[in-house]
């Protein structure tokens, strides 16, 4: 079990070793290995169906892996429910489709998990929620319901909701793919701010400008494998891999 403020082992934030994942007979991940240091910012890209979402969904066990090992903050992710709960408390996630709870106000969305999972007193949970809503620049929407907000606003609430759990690591699963173009910037700005403050993050995205600006390392996946990983300068300018170059020309080509 990971507890909230005990000194941590000094290993990587996320260590993935030889990860295999099958859906029936279809192999979605093939011997994927990846090590993410604390404070590191990783962008994962690749064509659809390449396994990038599957990989980050394995990190907080929204998907169960079939082979290999995942270690998060020194705790191995296995069938131990205590481990799974502990890891989920420390790993925040932002989804493509926001997944806000529509029957609660924005504020309640942000307060619920800290109160019932971390047992934070209501007043503290509200203070934290308001602070993070401020941070994502929508404090005035606290009493509205998600259905009353634009997509960009909803995604920023979703980021605030994840941050309210004070996670060590943030996972972003295509956070801007479901947004209208004019709303992408407001969401990316929030993520960039978060990155500049030293949050460990793994972000699946097709926003290559964002990757160039923020990432310490860009991972390219195809066919369930990590094909290439490199710092953004190197990745965008001097990739020698055929599949990477083809993907980049498609994404950047217009």
């Amino acid at each position: 079990m990971i507890s909230g403020n005990s000194p941590r082992s000094s290993g990587p934030a996320v260590l993935i070793e030889n990860l295999d994942k099958y859906y029936g007979t279809f192999q979605a991940l093939r011997k994927v290995s990846l090590s993410v240091d604390r404070g590191e910012r990783i962008v994962v890209c690749g064509p659809s169906g390449s396994g990038k979402s599957t990989m980050i969904r394995c990190i907080n066990r929204l998907e169960q892996h079939n082979g290999g090992r995942i270690t998060v903050l020194g705790t191995e992710l296995n069938d131990d429910v205590g481990n799974i709960d502990g890891i989920r408390r420390e790993v925040g996630m932002v989804f493509q489709h926001f997944n806000l709870f529509p029957h609660m106000t924005v504020l309640e969305n942000c307060m619920l998990a800290p109160m019932i999972v971390r047992k934070v007193p209501r007043a503290d949970a509200e203070a934290t929620a308001r602070r993070y809503l401020e941070k994502v620049r929508i404090p005035e929407q606290a009493m509205k319901y998600p259905g009353q907000l634009s997509g960009g606003q909803q995604q920023r609430v979703a980021i605030a909701r994840a941050l309210c759990m004070q996670p060590e690591i943030m996972l972003f699963d295509e956070p801007t793919s479901a947004l209208d173009p004019e709303m992408i910037a407001e969401v990316l700005d929030v993520i960039v701010t978060l990155a500049s403050e030293g949050m460990t993050m793994i972000c699946v995205t097709h926003e290559m400008g964002f990757a160039r600006r923020v990432a310490d390392r860009v991972i390219f996946m195809d066919g369930g494998e990590i094909v290439e990983q490199a710092p953004p300068d190197e990745f965008f300018t001097s990739s020698r891999n055929e599949r990477t170059r083809q993907f980049l020309s498609q994404v950047l080509g217009h």
């Binding site: 709960d85 989920r88 489709h97 997944n99 709870f101 619920l112 998990a113 999972v117 979703a158």
Partner: peptide, 17 residues
């Protein structure tokens, strides 16, 4: 939607929560 349950899981909520 299944995303609701996933979001709750990702926030560390247990089954009955």
């Amino acid at each position: 939607p299944s995303g609701q349950e996933e979001a709750a899981m990702a926030l560390g909520m247990r089954y009955w929560q």
